[in-house]
Amino acid sequence: KFGRVHERAEGPAKILAIGTATPFHWVDQSSYPDYYFRVTNSDHLVDLKEKFRRICNRTMISKRHMFLTEEILQKNPNLCSHNEPSFDVRQDILVSEIPKLGKEAVLMAIDEWAQPKSKITHLVFCTRSGVDMPGADYQLIKLLGLSPSVQRVMMYQQGCFAGGTMLRLAKDLAENNKGARVLVVCAESSAIGFRGPSEDHPDNLIAQALFGDGAAALIIGSDPKMGLERPIFEIVTTAQTFVPNGDCHLALHLREMGLTFHCTKDVPPTIAKNVESCLIKAFEPLGISDWNSIFWILHPGGNAIVDQVESTLGLEPNKLQATRNILREYGNLSSACVLFILDEIRKKSGREGLKTSGDGLDLGVLLSFGPGLTIETVVLR
């Protein structure tokens, strides 16, 4: 008597548009150690500064975009301390800036989509910054002038794996609601975790050397309108798992001094060791076991992770080039990073006149991972 209210779509979910945005301000990685130790009044920690310089040199990052300028840091000195309470200051900045950054990426996506924004039916927003109620999803709806009846899902504090999570959720929403057009937004800022150095917490140096700011937005829907919408990728399958006891290797915690970062040297080999089982589960039903026969979007948690995944799986050097390019130009953008790589690989395919948006290949994989050593596996066509 009370059956399904919403009719299912006929076809699989497809990515119809991609937009990205970054803050205008950026830092050069080669000179960042001098800048970082100067603005945090830590130049007296000579040995720690040299250690940080070595870490920065190993990241293979060229530059990173950041909202925090020297002027902002001078006005808010607690942000430059390692342990002073600064959460309220971070909140005041990020509750406002995260939706604005997301808006810039959304406008780029809508411009490519070339359809009225009134056709957006759902919003899925993800960030690890600016936790608030009502959330960044609500603020973004107002900034864009979208209908208050847009169906919203707000996900805070997920971390680097969440780019894949957003695709998984959007696929379910698009395929189970005929005519749905799902706006996916990942907006991230390193301002939540920026803090001064400490000899007692070397993990913090890794975070300060890796993370950048950026937002990515996608429009996802099934059954694209012929002649009006141009699909870029099809989302074939999605899956999530985590490595048992992985939280002892990688975890982040909200504290009075901001978001703290805990990471062990076992993260790269542990991820590399567990990736292939995810690939087998995803691609065995499709008859694929040659990992060089697919295109790759791999989250660059750090250069060591990229190198070890490449080595463990025997990947050809060009397979992870898009990942390395984004890491070099932006650093680790947390949940937004794989979506930047997705954009990079389709643009490169277009520039080179390849037959598909995925490096000329039919199928590919998007792998994202993060806290708890959670792994998201997304098969794309």
Rank of each mutant, 00 (worst) to 15 (best):
R4T: 02
R4A: 14
V5T: 08
V5C: 09
H6L: 10
R8L: 12
R8W: 03
A9E: 02
A9K: 06
E10R: 10
E10W: 02
E10M: 09
P12E: 07
P12T: 04
P12N: 01
A13W: 02
K14A: 15
K14T: 11
I15G: 03
L16F: 09
L16V: 02
L16Q: 00
A17E: 01
I18G: 00
A21Y: 02
T22S: 03
P23A: 08
P23I: 01
W26K: 10
D28S: 02
Q29L: 10
S30T: 14
Y32W: 04
P33W: 12
P33A: 12
P33V: 07
Y35M: 00
Y35A: 05
N41R: 07
N41P: 13
N41E: 06
K49N: 04
E50S: 10
E50V: 12
E50F: 00
F52R: 09
R53Q: 13
C56S: 08
C56F: 08
N57P: 07
N57S: 05
R58V: 01
T59G: 07
M60D: 08
M60Y: 11
S62N: 08
K63T: 02
T69V: 04
E70W: 09
E71D: 07
E71Y: 01
E71H: 01
I72V: 08
L73R: 07
K75W: 07
N76V: 07
L79T: 01
C80A: 06
N83D: 11
N83E: 08
N83Y: 11
E84G: 13
S86F: 08
V89I: 13
V89R: 11
Q91K: 06
D92E: 15
D92P: 02
I93K: 05
I93N: 11
V95P: 01
I98S: 07
P99L: 14
P99Q: 15
K100V: 06
K100T: 08
L101S: 05
L101W: 09
K103G: 09
K103C: 04
V106C: 13
L107Q: 14
L107E: 15
M108R: 15
A109D: 05
E112Y: 05
E112S: 03
A114S: 14
A114E: 00
P116N: 03
T121P: 02
L123V: 04
V124D: 08
V124P: 00
F125V: 10
F125M: 11
G130R: 05
V131G: 07
D132R: 09
M133R: 05
G135D: 09
D137F: 08
D137M: 13
Q139V: 08
Q139D: 07
I141N: 00
I141S: 09
I141C: 14
K142A: 07
K142S: 04
L143M: 11
L143V: 11
L144E: 02
G145A: 14
L146H: 02
L146N: 01
P148T: 07
S149R: 14
L228A: 05
E229A: 04
P231C: 03
I232K: 05
E234H: 00
I235L: 04
V236H: 08
V236W: 12
T237E: 12
T237K: 15
Q240M: 01
Q240A: 08
T241K: 12
T241N: 14
T241R: 07
F242L: 12
F242N: 12
V243F: 09
V243I: 12
P244N: 04
G246K: 12
D247L: 10
C248Q: 13
C248M: 11
H249K: 15
A251M: 13
L252W: 13
H253Y: 09
L254V: 07
E256L: 05
G258D: 08
L259W: 10
L259A: 14
L259V: 02
T260W: 10
F261R: 15
F261N: 15
H262E: 15
T264G: 13
T264R: 06
T264C: 09
K265I: 02
D266P: 12
V267N: 14
V267Y: 11
P269D: 15
T270F: 08
T270H: 09
I271V: 04
K273C: 10
K273S: 13
N274K: 11
N274E: 13
V275T: 00
V275D: 07
E276F: 00
E276G: 05
L279R: 03
I280S: 08
I280V: 14
K281P: 04
F283C: 08
E284C: 07
E284G: 10
E284L: 06
L286K: 06
L286S: 02
L286D: 06
L286I: 00
L286W: 08
G287P: 01
S289R: 06
W291S: 10
W291R: 06
N292A: 09
S293Q: 03
S293A: 03
F295I: 11
W296H: 01
W296E: 04
W296L: 09
I297D: 03
I297F: 06
H299Q: 13
H299N: 11
G301W: 11
G302L: 05
A304S: 05
I305N: 07
I305M: 07
V306S: 11
V306G: 08
D307F: 04
Q308P: 04
V309I: 09
V309A: 03
V309W: 04
E310I: 09
S311A: 13
S311M: 15
T312C: 10
T312M: 11
L313M: 14
G314L: 04
L315C: 03
L315E: 06
E316I: 02
E316W: 00
K319P: 02
L320Y: 01
L320D: 02
L320S: 10
Q321R: 07
Q321W: 10
A322C: 13
T323E: 01
N325I: 11
L327F: 09
L327V: 07
L327G: 06
Y330E: 11
G331I: 00
G331P: 01
N332A: 05
N332D: 12
S334W: 00
S334K: 15
S334D: 11
S334H: 14
S334L: 03
V338I: 10
L339F: 13
L339H: 15
F340C: 09
F340V: 06
L342Y: 08
L342S: 12
D343V: 00
E344S: 10
R346L: 04
K347S: 01
K347V: 03
K348G: 08
K348T: 00
S349M: 11
S349W: 07
G350T: 13
G350I: 13
R351M: 01
R351N: 00
E352P: 14
E352Q: 00
G353I: 00
L354W: 05
T356D: 06
S357E: 04
S357R: 05
S357N: 06
S357C: 02
G358N: 02
D359V: 03
G360A: 05
G360S: 07
L361W: 04
D362F: 00
D362W: 00
L363F: 12
L363P: 15
G364F: 01
G364H: 03
V365D: 14
V365A: 14
L366G: 12
L366A: 13
L366K: 09
L367E: 13
F369L: 14
F369I: 10
F369E: 15
P371C: 07
P371A: 08
G372F: 15
G372D: 04
L373C: 11
T374A: 13
T374Q: 11
I375F: 13
E376I: 00
T377V: 00
T377Y: 01
V378I: 08
V378H: 15
V378Q: 15
V378S: 15
R381V: 00
